[in-house]
Computed example of a mutant assay.
Amino acid sequence: MALRENFDQKLHHLNEQLLELGNLAKEAFEKSIRALHDKDVESAIQVIDEDSYIDHLEEDINDLAILLIARESPVAIDLRRIIVALKISSELERVADYAVNISKSAIRVSDTSKHASIPSLQKMVDVASEMLSLSLKAYLDEDVVLAKKIADMDDEVDKLYGETIQKCLQMAADDKEIINTITQLTFVAKSVERIADYATNISEGVFYLVKGIRYNLNS
């Protein structure tokens, strides 16, 4: 019993670290978008600087997961939990990387006087942010129904991405003075689209955790 309790404690710690990583990645994403909207260079720089802690946290998760596999020889559901934690930590670290990319775009357009408003891009952000929140909840609750919902939401993001790119092309053609801003917004749109994909990948991890079968929810 003592050995099992010790393993469960380590598994619980792994889960806590993963949820911390998830919250930090989501916060980085939302902060980068606010920095873009408010032309807040200081906040954008903070997202970039804080990414190193997120990278270290992912490394800690990987180290603990590998240690658990090597020393505890987990089987069945316990092994799946560890494998899924490794997969999800990687997805969340990439979310944070794209938040850094958005922050860099925010810095590049911070000194522009013209504002380019693209409603479909803001909608993309809203949906992607909700997908991240729900994916972490689906993981915590081991909820495959919620995980499937997230995959359906990704289709909406893909549709909005297409609309956003079309709008960017139109605006760039109509006003040459905002081409730099529009270029950066296309980069931001791509980053948001990728973040939604990573949330969907987390949902795939939930399916594997619960059912022991790999599903491709991005197809």
Rank of each mutant, 00 (worst) to 15 (best):
L79C: 03
S73Y: 04
V84D: 00
V75W: 01
V127C: 07
E58P: 01
S73T: 06
A128H: 09
E58N: 10
S129Y: 09
I54P: 05
A96E: 05
A76R: 01
D63T: 14
A76W: 00
H56W: 10
D49A: 15
I69S: 01
D111I: 10
V84H: 00
L92G: 03
P74T: 08
V95K: 01
S105L: 11
R71T: 13
V75G: 06
R81Q: 13
E72S: 08
S103N: 02
S89K: 07
A65H: 07
L57F: 05
A76Q: 00
L79W: 02
I107Q: 09
D60S: 11
K104W: 12
E58S: 04
K114E: 14
L68D: 06
E50P: 00
S89C: 08
A85S: 13
I102L: 07
R94G: 09
L79T: 01
I77S: 14
H56V: 12
Y53V: 11
E130W: 08
H56G: 11
R81N: 13
L86N: 06
N101Q: 06
I69Q: 03
M124R: 09
A85C: 12
V75P: 05
V125L: 06
V125W: 00
I66Y: 13
R80F: 06
K123S: 11
L68S: 07
L121G: 04
A99H: 03
R71F: 07
